[in-house]
């Protein structure tokens, strides 16, 4: 049996599975493996599965499925579900980011705030393996953990009306990438030429919850070449 969890019916269409309320990589991995297993096993009777940091919602059509019967079935399943049995490898994605010029409109502000040179900001931002705790806020938007404490900076007081797709930003203790153009208040320190969310793609979001992301600094020339398809970028190997 897994770490202590609660399974509760939230409404006639939502079942909620909750772990302890903490941000923790191994707990979060368990969340995603459980979500995947539920999606596979209960595929016929559910509409959607939404995993987050420490919880999973299972969504049903209340006219088709009784959420209380499903609750019993999921509970029974999780009692026997041994997540160690599932062979899972953690995907690691290398995301190219240009931290220069127009692609980094808030770099000067952040480097002043953090009291370090832009080079040092880039060094610290490209150093960690960021775990993807969940995808939310916007289609394909990754909630990443593990930002260097020296790079923490509050959101902008006046959010921008439009942030370009691919923008890499910092908000408080979080870092993330805007997969689509959107309004937003994040401090923008770079941009990736990779299209992270594409409704026409077989798998619409490049990044999945449970992955690990690493940022790789590229020049403006490389940004241009990758964006125009003149240079190939392999997301999975450096």
């Amino acid at each position: 049996m897994m770490k202590k969890i609660e399974i509760m019916t939230e409404s006639e269409s939502m079942l909620l599975i909750r772990w302890q309320s903490v941000i923790d990589v191994s707990l979060n991995q368990q969340v995603h493996h459980t979500a995947q297993a539920i999606r596979t096993v209960f595929n016929e009777s559910i509409r959607d599965v939404i995993p987050a940091y420490h919880s999973i919602a299972v969504i049903v059509d209340p006219l088709e499925t009784s959420v209380s019967s499903l609750c019993d079935a999921v509970e029974a399943f999780l009692l026997t579900f041994d997540e160690v049995m599932i062979q899972h490898t953690i995907r690691k994605l290398y995301i190219p980011v240009c931290y220069e010029g127009d692609y980094a409109p808030d770099m000067d502000e952040l480097s002043q705030y953090a009291q370090m040179m832009p080079d040092e900001v880039v060094k610290r931002h490209t150093a960690p393996d960021y775990p993807v705790y969940m995808i939310g806020f916007l289609p394909g938007f990754p909630y990443l953990g593990g930002l260097d404490e020296k790079l923490h900076m509050p959101r902008k007081e006046r959010p921008r009306k439009a942030i370009a797709a691919g923008s890499v930003g910092i908000a408080g203790g979080q870092t993330g990438i805007y997969p689509l153009q959107s309004p937003g208040g994040w401090q923008l320190i770079g941009r990736t030429p990779i299209k992270l969310f594409d409704v026409a793609a077989l798998s619409p979001s490049c990044i999945h919850a449970g992955d690990v992301v690493r940022f790789v600094a590229i020049s403006e020339q490389d940004y241009d070449a990758i964006e125009k398809g003149k240079k190939r970028w392999d997301l999975y190997t450096l």
Binding site: R47, I50, L138, P139
Partner: peptide, 11 residues
């Protein structure tokens, strides 16, 4: 649009 909420896609 159901089935893509885990990718942040609203219904």
């Amino acid at each position: 649009r159901y089935g893509y909420q885990s990718l942040g896609v609203p219904v």
